[in-house]
Write a protein that binds this DNA or RNA. Structure first.
Length: 474
RNA sequence: GCCCCCAUCGUCUAGAGGCCUAGGACACCUCCCUUUCACGGAGGCGGCAGGGGUUCGAAUCCCCUUGGGGGUACCA
């Protein structure tokens, strides 16, 4: 059987990390099984759906390296088909019109709650006589369409992640609404559970891979598949991504959209790697660092965990650092350059020099944007911070720098400069450490940073060292 | 309330009855490298929620308890 999976985001917000992780699992499964990964834009919530969100979602997926194999299906374009299916269900008696008002339903729920029973619809309009219906219509009452669910119904499926699953019809909340309220002579907007079934069948989806928050929906949808005479796909319910408090990660948890992570300087590779690690574990010997393409050679549900996974910034940061550190200076420089320009740095014409600078600061990067602050003292004239100023003002420091300047060779030479450093420290009566720190303060305006000799060499190549040393002593 | 799911170091996880004195990664701590900060290297701290079974033997199987999560929409 050909594997056909899909991601069905609703464009009511930017691509969310949870949706992206679902996308990753679907994509991984499709690629692993030489199947197809499809997209369906669920834009039937007209109020909240926005084209810019669709764009954001598509761009985010592309950025992550998640490609799709067919033109995305747009759900709103299939409304007529959905309504026809509802009409058929109505005609066959599997669905019916319910004329209950919001207030009635509300009262029903409250009464059951008060009686210590689960709130649910009591199916009171399931068997209305023609006279009763006519009476409601004369009153001008609008109706929703409900799909009948018998209490005696026992629903079973084999979940690819969780194994055998069972659900009872009586726990589904009563006959389910499949079309919104509207005048009783027509059919209102088709609702989620019905539409998903219709569209998944239309797209010939073989495996539905989604978060475990959909488990109850699966029970309802299975009933719909049967009523509609459609073949049900296999289901895999993945664990949820949890926030710091162990609850389902939501938009309210701060940074949760892929575009935000991107803007913060996370690499697509790191995000993909980390999402692959949340809920799935690579086979022994594979290690924790992998690209999605690598993971796609091994992905299977037997290594998908059942418990939710807490989102851990520390781990993500570590992975991102690893990705950055593993990049060639040239590749990294290419990504840094736009950020440097954005920061207003004037870049040297010599890309080789920028490559060397990148190589120097690379190990201290966690996020791409860290490269801005790290490169700043090299690409602009630094303003010494308090600690640097204090050190320069310390006993004998400036005198030693003056002495150093006098002996500095025209052409920077590592060995010669090291030797000179020793001589000068001795002559000036300061420790080598004090001198070195002084040089660092003068050159870079800070007491901490990358390797001093390498930094110095870099600056001297741009003819920047002498002036900075001079500037520090007067 | 009701239904469902889940349960190994602080976090992510390995573990499919003896290989477990429970392994790895992140975080944390110590040391090494180093003028400094990082990076890197070497160590360390730290866990099978509890109770019953089953078995010669249980982190692994079963039951109960506890805890956590999800769902209970005329959203998706």
């Amino acid at each position: 059987m050909t594997v056909r999976v899909r991601l069905a985001p609703s464009p009511t917000g930017p691509l969310h990390i949870g949706t992206a992780r679902t996308a990753v699992f679907n994509w991984l499964y499709a690629r692993r099984n030489k199947g197809r990964f499809l997209l369906r834009i669920e834009d039937t919530d007209k109020e909240r759906s926005k084209p810019e969100f669709t764009r954001n979602i598509l761009e985010g997926l592309r950025w992550l390296g998640i490609d799709w194999d067919e033109e995305p299906v747009v759900q709103s374009a299939r409304g007529a088909l959905h309504r026809q299916a509802i009409a058929d269900l109505l005609a066959s008696g599997k669905a019916y019109r319910c004329y209950c008002s919001e207030a009635e339903l509300e009262a029903m729920r409250n009464a059951r709650k008060a009686a210590g029973q689960p709130p649910r619809y009591d199916n009171r309009h399931r068997h209305l006589t023609a006279d009763q219906e006519a009476a409601f219509q004369r009153e001008g009452r609008e109706a929703v369409v409900r799909f009948a669910i018998d209490d005696s119904e026992e629903i079973h499926w084999h979940d690819l992640v969780r194994g055998p699953m069972a659900w009872s019809g009586r726990d589904l909340g009563g006959d389910m609404v499949i079309a919104r309220r509207c005048p009783a002579d027509s059919i209102g907007d088709p609702l989620y559970n019905l539409v998903v079934v219709l569209d998944d069948a239309f797209m010939d989806i073989s495996h539905v891979i989604r978060g475990e928050d959909h488990i109850a929906n699966t029970a309802k949808q299975l009933l719909l598949y049967r009523a509609l005479g459609l073949k049900a796909p296999s289901f895999a319910h993945t664990p949820l991504i949890l926030n710091r408090d162990g609850r389902k990660l939501s938009k309210r948890d701060g940074v949760t959209s892929i575009s935000d992570f991107q803007a913060m300087g996370y690499t697509a590779e790191a995000i993909g790697n980390y999402m692959g690690l949340l809920g799935w574990s690579p086979p022994q010997g594979m290690g924790e660092r992998f690209t999605l393409v690598e993971a796609s050679r091994h992905f299977d549900f037997d290594r998908v965990n059942r418990a939710g996974a807490r989102f851990d910034w520390d781990k993500l940061n570590w992975i991102n650092g690893q990705v950055l550190h593993g990049q060639s200076s040239t590749a990294l420089r290419a990504q840094l350059e736009p950020l440097w320009r954005q920061a207003g740095f004037t870049l040297a014409a010599d890309p080789a020099w920028l490559d060397r600078l990148t190589g120097l600061i690379s190990p201290s990067l966690t996020l791409l944007k860290d490269g801005v602050d790290q490169a700043r003292p090299f690409l602009t004239t630094p303003e010494p911070d308090q600690a640097a100023r204090d050190h320069l003002a310390s006993e004998g420091c400036r005198a030693a720098l003056r002495l150093l300047l006098e002996g500095l060779p025209d052409r920077f030479d590592d060995a010669a400069v090291r030797a000179l450093l020793g001589q000068v420290a001795k002559a000036a009566g300061v420790s080598r450490g004090v001198l070195m720190k002084g040089v660092r303060a003068a050159l870079l305006g800070s007491l901490q940073g990358p390797d001093l000799m390498a930094s110095w060499a870099l600056l001297s190549q741009r003819g920047e060292d002498r002036g900075r040393l001079l500037g520090a002593i007067d």
